[in-house]
Simulated assay, not measured.
Amino acid sequence: MRYRKLGGSGLNVSVIGLGSWLTYGTATEAETAEACIRRAYELGVNFFDTANAYNRGAAEEVMGRVLADYPRESCVIATKVYFPMGEGPNDRGLSRKHIMEQCEASLRRLGTDYIDLYQCHRYDPETPLEETLRALDDLQAQGKILYAGVSEWSAAQIADAVGIADRLGLRKLVSNQPIYNMLVRYIEKEVVPVSLREGIGQVVFSPLAQGILSGKYKPGSPIPAESRASDERTNLWIKSYLRDDVLSCVEKLVRLAEETGCTPTQFALAWVLGRPGISSAIVGASRTAQVEENAAAADLNLSADVLKKADAILEELRGFLPIW
């Protein structure tokens, strides 16, 4: 496993991180989820990402229970706040009240005294940004979180946050968690340049495009049984990828990966990790074999010639954006 600094901070995170969005506490049985976490740790993964909203805290509970078996200092635990956690008017968003209350709730579910990386799961236009940043800064001063980040914020929102933090003398954000993969590249235009300038690292989710880049889905063919796309509990975000033009492009990428001597999954992860500003790629896993395959991508470097061929293929889908 390789490690990189999280943005301009001193924190080292594994280039492959393990997430729990569609798996732990939801579709994947607890025993299988625990096996995946343990195998990831054995392979050197130290970055474990979850959120309070993932099955209303169940994912945090699973992750916290397993990671409790390892030295706390060996793990970088990340979670998030923003989405509704109740029916009340203050049970959502990025107000000081919601942030403070949900941090305490996440700490209880994770079974830990502190969260390494606490992330604003989305931008909250209904709360003053200064209020949100002061709350995050206070949590850092209290030692309840060590670093703060965001997820799916625009370049302008990130720049505004940096400016306010500078003006008020607050601790800076260190990360952004956007969707990013070979098919979805919107962050390259504005988000990455601003983040590089301000020392904010990208810890990207969906680097395999919901499994589309594994090559398991074929144009004009039925959806494979027992795949994510066939499961009504987890296939909402994958449907917009299931177009023949997308799948035909992926078939070409699969052939290029085979020529390169790696699996399509490893090829897709290596491509992401080779892009500017990427600190870590967060993958999901429902089997330990997937964890092993993903972790092996950490040591894979794609040649300039291979990257040029990949870019030529991807040009066919320039501007593609799925629903997520």
Rank of each mutant, 00 (worst) to 15 (best):
H121P: 06
E198Q: 14
A161N: 05
C262P: 00
L94S: 09
S151L: 13
E316I: 04
E188D: 13
A270R: 07
L317Y: 00
E190A: 15
A312W: 03
P207Q: 15
E258Q: 14
V191C: 01
K189L: 12
W324H: 14
R109F: 05
L110K: 15
A27G: 11
A225W: 01
N235K: 08
G261Y: 00
G93L: 13
I282D: 10
A257G: 06
E104N: 13
G163K: 11
L321W: 04
K218I: 05
L43Y: 01
K309C: 00
K172N: 13
E251F: 07
R109G: 05
F320R: 01
I323H: 09
Y180N: 02
E259F: 01
E61A: 11
V283L: 06
L183K: 05
G57K: 04
M1D: 05
G199M: 13
L170S: 02
T50L: 08
L94D: 08
A105L: 11
V66S: 13
R109M: 04
I238S: 11
A310N: 01
A40S: 09
E131N: 00
S280W: 01
I99W: 03
E31W: 03
P125K: 14
R275K: 15
D244V: 07
L307F: 02
K308F: 05
Y114N: 08
R171L: 10
Y217S: 07
S20K: 10
A296V: 00
V15K: 04
A105D: 14
K97A: 07
M100W: 11
L136S: 05
Q177M: 05
L94G: 10
A58K: 14
A289C: 06
D166W: 12
L236Q: 09
V150Y: 08
D137Q: 09
R185N: 01
R197S: 10
G7L: 06
S280T: 04
V191T: 12
T26L: 15
F267K: 00
S14N: 02
I115W: 13
R171M: 08
E316A: 15
L170N: 00
G277Y: 03
M100L: 15
G10Y: 03
D245L: 00
R2P: 02
T265N: 15
N55P: 00
S154K: 10
E101H: 12
S154D: 10
G220L: 08
I323W: 09
V254Q: 00
A58C: 10
G199V: 10
D160K: 12
W237S: 09
L22E: 11
T79G: 01
V62K: 06
Y70H: 09
V45S: 02
P89H: 04
S214N: 14
D124V: 10
S240I: 12
T23C: 06
G319D: 08
T23I: 06
L117T: 03
P71N: 05
M100S: 12
I200T: 00
A156I: 15
A33K: 13
Q119D: 04
L129E: 03
Q102D: 13
S106R: 09
L247V: 02
K239F: 03
L213V: 02
T263Y: 08
I164R: 04
D311I: 07
T263E: 12
M1T: 09
A296Y: 00
R167I: 07
I164E: 08
